[in-house]
């Protein structure tokens, strides 16, 4: 008589589950990790990223904070000064502006101004991005503010695998990090995937080629990765073979993967859903122009949000944001230059 052991069949995990797994596993692995934010304990977070975390690890390590982003970040700085690692949640990344001073003046500079005496292992993470009708204050991608503040890592995962691996990587990196999660991807079934059973962390600063192509390179991150992939499908029908690079980490930026691609395709379109002026797409264009100019057969282009806030009504929102159509048109213009 044989004993049959039934194993649960592996299931595909969505983006928010991947984040949740990363937090549970890091809380288990690192007893010095503290999580804090608005509504993250009793409620389990506005989006459920910290669901069950307080029940498992207690209210002293999973802290419901008063509504003060400045204090959430400021006390995280103090916790780090006291030797802790901190995950500080912004309920929406739009609200991070209320904690801006603590991030850019206190946290980002701490290692620098103490000549390396003090480390700031603090990950400030939160739901970001438009396309969901969130309007002005629930749609922002304000990553450029932080890329322009030396001392901060800036990360933006686009898949469940990356969400888990990069969050772990960020929590182990030892530097302060602003971690942009794409809330429109949190529960998107189409991108759910099997995650490794074993522990893994993705080191910051490694881009990934999401689609190989020979005629043109889209360089992007976050939700626009999917717009670029869709555009690539449309372009293929028109005989244009587009490569799509997901940079995953803005600071530090993996230039090599971008330059290698440009050397092959000779055409660049940098894409982000933040406004154009001083946005990260501009940084990518600048670096390619400075360091890989000889590979370019056409002026590098940017497809970004217009220099506007994100409006609410659907036609307005779609009008100002990057779209598959805008990407296809730009690509055709680039390859025909």
């Amino acid at each position: 008589m044989s004993l049959v052991v039934e194993h649960a069949a592996p299931v595909k995990k969505n983006y928010v589950t991947a984040l949740k797994e990363a937090l549970f596993e890091e809380m288990e692995r690192n007893p010095n990790l503290i999580c804090q934010g608005e509504d993250i304990g009793i409620l389990g977070g506005a989006f459920g990223v910290t669901e069950g975390l307080q029940a498992r690890y207690g209210a002293s390590r999973v802290v419901d904070m008063p509504i003060s982003e400045a204090c959430i970040v400021g006390s995280a700085v103090g916790l780090a000064l006291g030797g802790k690692t901190v995950m500080a949640e912004m309920q929406f990344i739009d609200f991070i502006s209320c904690g801006f001073d603590q991030i850019v003046n206190m946290m980002a500079t701490y290692h620098y101004r103490t000549a390396g005496e003090v480390n700031m292992p603090v990950v400030v993470r939160g739901p970001a991005g438009a396309y969901g009708g969130g309007a002005l204050y629930h749609s922002q991608m304000n990553e450029a503010w932080f890329c322009n503040s030396p001392g901060l890592r800036v990360v933006c995962p686009s898949t469940p695998y990356d969400a888990k691996g990069l969050l772990k990587g960020a929590l182990r990196d030892g530097n302060p990090c602003i971690f942009f999660e794409i809330k429109e991807l949190y529960r998107k079934r189409e991108i759910a995937e099997f995650l490794p059973e074993e522990d893994y962390a993705i080191p910051l600063g490694k881009a990934i080629v999401r689609r190989e192509g020979s005629d043109l390179t889209f360089v992007t991150y976050g939700q626009n990765v999917y717009h670029c992939l869709q555009a690539a499908v449309e372009l293929e029908k028109l005989g244009v073979n587009a490569e799509v690079i997901d940079i995953r980490t803005l600071v530090p930026l993996d230039e090599d993967t971008i330059f290698t691609s440009i050397a092959k395709t000779n055409h660049l379109i940098a894409v982000n859903e933040a406004p154009m002026t001083c946005g990260f797409a501009g940084e990518i264009v600048a670096r390619v122009s400075e360091k890989a100019f000889e590979y370019l057969d056409a002026p590098p282009m940017r497809i970004t949000r217009l220099d506007t806030p994100v409006p609410w009504a659907k036609p307005l929102e779609l009008h100002v944001l990057p779209s598959v159509e805008k990407l296809v048109n730009a690509a055709l213009k680039s390859v025909k230059f």
Binding site: I34, A70, C71, V73, G74, S75, A76, V77, G78, L79, A80, L81, G82, G83, K84, Q102, M106
Partner: peptide
């Protein structure tokens, strides 16, 4: 630095 003070004594 007051929130930092609060955090450091929390730690």
């Amino acid at each position: 630095t007051i929130p930092v003070a609060a955090g450091v004594v929390y730690a």
